[in-house]
Amino acid sequence: MVSAINVFVRHPRYALCLVLVLVPALYLILPLHYEPPVSSLHIPLHDYTDLTSKVAQSEAIYQHTIQEREGLIERFGPQPSDLDLFPPNTPPWPPYTVWDFFPAAFNCPHEVRRIGVLGDGGKWVCGLSRLAEKKDCVIYSFGINEESSFEAGLLANTNHCKIWGYDFSVKGFAKQIPYSQKHRTIFHPYGLAGTDHVSTGDEPTMYTLETLMKMNGHQHIDILKIDIEGWEFETMTDILKSFSEKGLPLPFGQLQIEIHIWNKKFDYFLKWWEGFEEAGLRPFWTEPNLVYVNYADSRKPDLAEYSFLNIKGDNAFTS
């Protein structure tokens, strides 16, 4: 200690240089208490080969994303009711849109493929190979609108799947379904709704998912496609409620849905989405539909395709 003082007295410039070098070095070496931001929290990752472990790891990653969403809401809100779906182009220009809060952060444990045409009409599917030879493969498609490339792709890549199609605005599947595969398709001019309504006039016949499954003698659907122009909010709310009240998991393994977020509020959409999560639906892919944004500068990017995997219950993709 004395010798150190003598060095400082005799050679002050040397001692000062030594201090300037040692202090930053000690700062870098010595452990300091540091609370990392949510985005840097560590999640152990392993190269799992068994399906159960893959799904569990994907779920851990997704739960981490939910925490990040809560932090983003607090940052820009702080309450969900304080947020806009698409903030106006005025100061302070919050750098977000509604889709930033709902990333497709769940990792599909199988191959991911786009089935159908590029652009509007095609959908992203997780693990279609799991259905390639499945004898009792069942697919429901709501919303045909003269574009059936998705359904045609599913038929082309499986050997036993049958597709039940529903749309009261058209008379059947579109021309993309080849004649050789039509025997694996069934079409009805019905709509999907939260309650049953048999038409007695100009209004279309509407059925719940549960009613249609009973009519067809089905206990389970492997892939459910829904594109019903905004009615997905009311319809999916009723579907989730119906099976939740019975204590049953959702009866489908995978969901491809186009979300039309027209005239909605952020807090409403958040609650609707959280209903999906509570029921076990996890988004593994998303694709914004920007066609209508291209037509008019005043339009918002309020359409988005999402693909969900159901991690609850027994299905071909997670079991």
Rank of each mutant, 00 (worst) to 15 (best):
R282V: 01
I226F: 02
A316P: 10
C161Q: 09
H110A: 05
I43H: 10
D100W: 05
F8M: 13
E74Y: 05
W272L: 05
L281D: 04
L28S: 07
L30H: 02
Y179K: 12
D136W: 05
D202W: 08
I144H: 03
G194R: 08
D222S: 05
T200P: 00
A174I: 02
G201I: 06
D238S: 15
N294C: 07
S319I: 01
E59C: 01
G247N: 07
R13L: 15
L51K: 12
N289D: 13
I228D: 12
K54I: 04
Y306D: 04
K271W: 03
N263P: 00
Q181C: 05
G253M: 01
Y207N: 03
P36C: 07
F187D: 11
K54D: 01
Y207D: 00
Y190T: 04
F284N: 05
F276D: 04
M215K: 15
G230S: 09
P103I: 06
F102I: 07
N294M: 12
Q219L: 11
A15G: 03
Y140E: 05
Y179Q: 15
A60G: 06
I139T: 09
I163T: 11
F142G: 07
K135F: 03
R113I: 01
G143Q: 05
G217R: 09
L83N: 10
S53C: 02
N89F: 06
Q79V: 01
H260L: 08
R130G: 01
P109Q: 05
G275I: 09
E133A: 12
G122E: 00
F233A: 06
P36R: 05
K175N: 12
I177Q: 05
E278T: 15
R282M: 13
L270Y: 05
S53K: 08
P37C: 04
I177V: 10
E229V: 11
A156M: 07
P31V: 02
Y179L: 13
S39T: 13
G253D: 04
I73Y: 02
T52L: 08
G165Y: 09
N310C: 10
L118Q: 12
E274K: 11
I223A: 11
S169F: 13
K182M: 15
I144K: 06
L85T: 09
P103S: 10
L118H: 09
F269Q: 01
K123P: 02
H197A: 14
P178Q: 06
D302E: 11
G217K: 10
Y140K: 00
Q254P: 07
G116E: 03
F269A: 01
W272M: 04
R10M: 07
E278M: 11
P37Q: 10
R75P: 00
G121L: 01
N216A: 13
G127M: 11
I115G: 02
F187H: 10
A15T: 09
